[in-house]
Simulated scan of single mutants.
Amino acid sequence: MATLDVIDVDLAVGLGHTHMPVHQLLRMGRGAVIALNTDADDNLTLFANGMPVADVQVVLQGDMIAIEIQHVHGRAQKQAALQNG
């Protein structure tokens, strides 16, 4: 178990996505708002090293933003994500 103490894991939360032409993106300035395809109460996806590993919800803890794990993806889902890459 001691060797697991030194493994780095890159965590990211996918907030949603959208499609827009590059010229529109390039015209955006500071403070621009980009609408995503996700509602405020939707589950988001937690990625570990680029692989989806769990569905999460954003929660507020005082003045901090955190995530709460709702569902951990099984091995079959992770293998499917690898194959669909």
Rank of each mutant, 00 (worst) to 15 (best):
T3V: 12
Q79G: 00
F47G: 01
R30P: 00
Q61H: 12
Q77C: 03
D41G: 00
K78F: 00
D63R: 10
V22M: 15
H19Y: 11
Q77K: 05
L4K: 08
L44R: 14
E68W: 01
V9D: 03
M64V: 01
D39K: 10
R75I: 15
I69S: 06
M1G: 14
T3S: 15
T45K: 05
A80W: 04
L25R: 02
V33Y: 02
H73E: 08
L15W: 00
A54D: 03
Q79I: 13
V9Y: 08
R30G: 00
Q61L: 14
L60C: 09
I34E: 08
A54R: 01
H73A: 07
N43D: 15
T45D: 09
R75Y: 10
D39G: 13
V58R: 05
G62F: 06
H17L: 07
Q83G: 14
L46G: 03
V6H: 12
H19L: 13
G62P: 04
N49M: 02
H71Q: 11
R75C: 07
V13E: 07
T38H: 01
L44P: 00
H23Y: 11
M1E: 14
I69M: 11
A76W: 02
A32G: 10
G50C: 10
A48N: 06
V72I: 14
H71Y: 07
M28N: 06
A66F: 01
V72G: 01
H23N: 10
G14V: 12
L4P: 00
H23C: 03
L26S: 08
I34A: 09
A32N: 06
Q70D: 11
I69L: 12
R27P: 06
L4H: 07
M64I: 00
T3C: 07
N37I: 05
Q77S: 12
D55E: 14
V6S: 13
G31R: 05
Q24E: 15
V53C: 05
D55C: 00
G14Q: 13
N49H: 04
V13H: 07
N43Y: 09
V9R: 05
H73R: 14
D5M: 14
N37Y: 06
Q61G: 04
N84W: 05
N84D: 09
I34N: 06
F47P: 01
A76D: 15
A40T: 08
G14M: 14
L36V: 04
G50L: 08
L36K: 01
L82E: 11
L46V: 04
L44S: 01
Q57L: 09
L60N: 06
G29L: 09
Q79A: 12
H17S: 13
L25H: 04
L44N: 01
P52I: 03
D5S: 10
I65P: 01
V53L: 11
N43P: 05
Q57C: 10
L4D: 15
V6Y: 14
V9N: 04
D8L: 12
D10Y: 09
R30A: 11
L26W: 02
